[in-house]
Design a binder for these strands. Structure first.
Lengths: 127, 127
DNA sequence: TTTGTTTTACGAAAACCTTCGTATGTTTGC
DNA sequence: GCAAACATACGAAGGTTTTCGTAAAACAAA
């Protein structure tokens, strides 16, 4: 099952993942803070995402309540995989180098990454 | 200066970065191995990329010779930045975790990343 | 020279994404 | 009840990307 949300769709998915089930109005209010778009634009986008099964909705109330129908984890995973293939010819570590090199991570983030690396090393030895 | 090649354009850029200056025929032959597209499609794409200044070309010979006009480094950097913003709300380390978690890097790659991490830590302390 | 191959240029169709206007129906508050 | 506010549905315009057919020019070989 291929997942490839567009940039606009990703914006909406991010809001839904963050805030949980929301109406078009809810999403639009968040979107409006960073973007300039009409209400019906957001509505239309979410309707199309519903058609594409990216969202499910509860039509009980007049204001439909939308929920993301794909997990953030899985979506990010697929997008990263595709990105690595397209941009780094399949080399994950090259992507990591780029990401770490250009963006300064803070102490906590560095510690988390170090820990992950340590775990990966352990797994490699145990084989 | 905003750079945002499409996926198709990126395929061509990757070939040019890999192989150096090439004719449309050269690029198309490579492309054909992994994709199914007509020659004029590749031609048109490269002409458009030329219009967009993504490529430069030498028209001396009948078969024009195209060269990438943006560096792989810089392009990857911009794409990673945009990707992190869109998909991981700006958190580079989250991307790193995803990339490292799902794709298994080999020993050498792990070492390179460890070294990079060490350097970043050193820089943090010296401040 | 003539025929066939290769190349560029160009137009246009098809698909997709984004945006918005308008119609229509529902709800709320006075 | 009625006007104002709010919601959905829908069509269509405008933009971009991808694809391909066709024409014209350059070249190669017989």
């Amino acid at each position: 099952m291929e997942i490839k949300p567009t940039d606009s769709e990703l914006e909406i998915l991010n809001i839904l993942w963050e805030n949980g089930p929301s109406t078009v109005r809810d999403v639009h209010d968040v979107l409006e803070r960073s973007k300039d778009a009409g209400y019906t634009t957001t509505l239309k986008l979410m309707q199309i995402m519903h058609d594409k099964k990216l969202l499910v909705r509860d039509e009980t109330a007049r204001s439909h309540v939308y929920t993301a129908n794909i997990s953030q984890q899985k979506t990010q995973g697929q997008l990263v995989k595709k990105f690595i293939d397209n941009v780094f010819n399949g080399s994950a570590s090259q992507l990591v180098m780029q990401a770490l090199g250009n963006h300064k991570a803070n102490r906590q983030e560095l510690d988390e990454i170090k820990q992950l690396l340590a775990e990966m090393e352990k797994k490699m030895k145990n084989r």
